[in-house]
Design a protein around this nucleic acid. Sequence first.
DNA 1: TTGTTTTTACGAAAGCTTTCGTATAATATT
DNA 2: AATATTATACGAAAGCTTTCGTAAAAACAA
Lengths: 128, 128
Amino acid sequence: MKKLPKPTEAELEILQVLWSRGPSSVREVNDILNKKREVGYTTTLKIMQIMADKGLAERDTSTRTHIYTPAVSEGDTQKQLLNRFLETTFKGSASKLVMQALGNHEASAEELEKIKALIKKIEGEQSK
Amino acid sequence: MKKLPKPTEAELEILQVLWSRGPSSVREVNDILNKKREVGYTTTLKIMQIMADKGLAERDTSTRTHIYTPAVSEGDTQKQLLNRFLETTFKGSASKLVMQALGNHEASAEELEKIKALIKKIEGEQSK
DNA sequence: TTGTTTTTACGAAAGCTTTCGTATAATATT
DNA sequence: AATATTATACGAAAGCTTTCGTAAAAACAA
């Protein structure tokens, strides 16, 4: 497994667009970003070019309008960032983080069910 | 409630030392940091001075060796950073984050108990 | 064809954090 | 007292990310 570079904030924002939209042009990504905040077109272009350089995205340059595709999965990226965040902010204590997260943000009943199911599964494995 | 500046990585590292040790001098903090990685003394000094400027720490300058005290609580800071992380990485879905955190890092049996208890409490509130 | 729009490419500026060299003052040592 | 050590202060350099101006190429429209 190769180690992926940690995406910056701006890169992560773009990755999220690519994850939800699939392969996209700079124009399309930039339009979406601009629904939330003002970003210059060339700014988005530049960052997407950097992402291609770093290997966070791949681009198809066969047509004039280049099409970018995410080269890292959403789940893997979340896992990577979570590990890092867990380490820096909670010194590795996942349960502390979970407690904080559940305490401050209400999850729906079904989400809580999923979490309970997961806990059960983990407990099952532990008792072996 | 006043809004605290977001601590940088280096600042967070120092805050963690201050939280665990309580009021400390630059030398003491720097020594602890150097157990993990090499940091120059003046680098640590500079960042702690910035922290005092920003209001992340307070310092007692009544003696030659200034003593720094955290001015923000560990819990509040974790909550602030967690909210931000949740937004940027999990688009606000706390349960997704919890699932990932529990899935990837084993929590001890007692930690799982605590989490289950918390879920029960939340469920109790929801059913009202 | 001629001019307008759209796109990529390039590089530099701006902004932020971290690192460090140097100066100066206070303290400790011999 | 003279020297060495330890502390703070200051500013600049280094490193990284983000932003943007400008140019060149491609596609489109009149």
